[in-house]
Simulated assay, not measured.
Amino acid sequence: MVQTRGQRSVFVTVGTTKFEALIKAVDTPEFAAALAAKGYSQLIIQKGAGEYVPCKLLPAGATSAEHASGLKVQYFDFSPSLSEYISSAALIISHAGSGSIFETLHAGKPLIVVPNPLLMDNHQAELGNHLAAMQAVVCAAPDELLSAVTSLDTSQLKPFPAKNACGIIEKVDDFMGRHRATS
């Protein structure tokens, strides 16, 4: 289910990965209350390949319900495309995968990036911190997410200039030792 008319939706995505800490961070009554206090009315969680099932905001066995905070909550594992969820959301909270980040930025949506601290290298944190320094996103660790939402002022985020993606891609390619063929 995608956001319905008149609702301000928050979409949380882990893409095709497993990121239990992010899903657990959004599955708390405190997080739901913070979203409701900010005027959001719906929380949609795409949990990916993780085993953790949102259980603090939803009754056992339910994939959607209204929480006591007034927030409508739902989750799902995967979808063939996340574009519709991204385009209809008022706020995106995403793992720090470059595909999810750039799809959200190109859609012009406010974004909180959450790097996965369990990955062996810190490329997600580097990308998230770089974009946060550009003021294009807010970057927060899973245990900082509640605070990030509470203090979030989306008007302070700057639009991401599409032309800069090539520079970042080239830097990532250089870092990974990939060399692109020139025409």
Score class of each variant (00 low, 15 high):
residue 4 T to D: 11
residue 4 T to L: 15
residue 4 T to H: 14
residue 6 G to E: 08
residue 8 R to Q: 13
residue 8 R to S: 12
residue 9 S to T: 14
residue 10 V to P: 01
residue 10 V to C: 06
residue 11 F to W: 06
residue 14 V to P: 04
residue 14 V to D: 07
residue 15 G to H: 03
residue 18 K to Q: 13
residue 19 F to K: 01
residue 20 E to S: 10
residue 22 L to C: 02
residue 22 L to W: 03
residue 23 I to R: 00
residue 26 V to M: 09
residue 26 V to N: 04
residue 27 D to H: 04
residue 29 P to A: 14
residue 29 P to M: 02
residue 30 E to D: 15
residue 33 A to N: 14
residue 34 A to N: 03
residue 38 K to A: 10
residue 38 K to Q: 13
residue 40 Y to S: 04
residue 41 S to P: 06
residue 42 Q to R: 15
residue 46 Q to T: 06
residue 49 A to T: 11
residue 51 E to N: 12
residue 51 E to H: 08
residue 52 Y to Q: 07
residue 54 P to A: 08
residue 57 L to A: 05
residue 59 P to Q: 08
residue 60 A to M: 09
residue 61 G to L: 04
residue 63 T to K: 13
residue 65 A to Y: 13
residue 67 H to T: 01
residue 69 S to G: 04
residue 69 S to C: 01
residue 71 L to S: 06
residue 78 F to L: 08
residue 80 P to S: 04
residue 85 Y to P: 04
residue 85 Y to A: 12
residue 87 S to P: 00
residue 89 A to F: 08
residue 90 A to I: 01
residue 91 L to I: 06
residue 97 G to E: 12
residue 100 S to P: 02
residue 101 I to C: 02
residue 102 F to H: 05
residue 103 E to D: 14
residue 103 E to S: 14
residue 105 L to S: 09
residue 107 A to Y: 11
residue 108 G to Y: 01
residue 108 G to T: 03
residue 108 G to P: 01
residue 109 K to L: 06
residue 110 P to Q: 09
residue 112 I to M: 08
residue 112 I to P: 05
residue 113 V to G: 00
residue 118 L to C: 07
residue 120 M to N: 11
residue 123 H to E: 08
residue 124 Q to Y: 03
residue 124 Q to M: 07
residue 125 A to W: 12
residue 126 E to Q: 10
residue 132 A to W: 00
residue 134 M to F: 08
residue 135 Q to M: 05
residue 136 A to I: 02
residue 137 V to D: 00
residue 138 V to W: 03
residue 139 C to Y: 04
residue 142 P to G: 07
residue 143 D to V: 07
residue 145 L to G: 05
residue 146 L to Y: 06
residue 147 S to C: 09
residue 153 D to N: 15
residue 154 T to F: 01
residue 155 S to T: 15
residue 158 K to W: 02
residue 158 K to H: 11
residue 163 K to Y: 11
residue 163 K to P: 01
residue 167 G to A: 10
residue 169 I to W: 09
residue 170 E to H: 11
residue 171 K to H: 12
residue 175 F to R: 15
residue 176 M to K: 10
residue 180 R to P: 00
residue 180 R to Q: 13
residue 183 S to F: 13
residue 183 S to C: 10
